[in-house]
Design a protein around this nucleic acid. Structure first.
Length: 111
DNA sequence: CGTTTGACGGTCC
DNA sequence: CGGACCGCCAAAC
């Protein structure tokens, strides 16, 4: 294992998000429990500097809004990626959000 | 080492 | 409905 950065934990969880599912910053933060939603957002900001591809489009805020879409290559990329995975996006928000919601605390073993 | 910042969350008004 | 404010904590400057 390399240097265990705070980002690494966040990336790990994000990479574990199943295709067609989404999660929220707060859920990840709550799962890691050692960080806050802002830390997750901050980590995602570093995702583009990471060697790994982080499916950050699967991470939205607690409303299911694509708040971070402006950080992608272009603002609509996030929607396209999600819709390509079977997620319906309307007005920059995920439809049937709870049905697509993937809760790491529920799907992953306790930390 | 103090200050700013950040893709958030929740509460308040 | 949306603007304002606080908390949370690490990285960047």
């Amino acid at each position: 294992m390399k240097n265990k950065s705070f980002f690494k934990d966040v990336f790990n969880v994000v990479l574990l998000i199943p295709k067609g599912r989404v999660t929220t910053y707060g859920l990840i933060a709550n799962y890691l429990e050692t960080c806050t939603a802002r830390m997750v957002g901050w980590a995602m900001n570093a995702s583009h500097t990471s060697d790994d591809k982080i499916p950050a489009h699967r991470v939205v805020n607690r409303n299911g809004e694509l708040t971070g879409k402006h950080h992608f290559a272009y603002p609509t990329l996030m929607e396209e990626l999600l819709e390509a995975e079977g997620v319906t996006i309307i007005n920059g928000k995920i439809q049937n959000f709870k049905e697509h919601l993937w809760n790491p605390m529920n799907e992953l073993p306790a930390l």
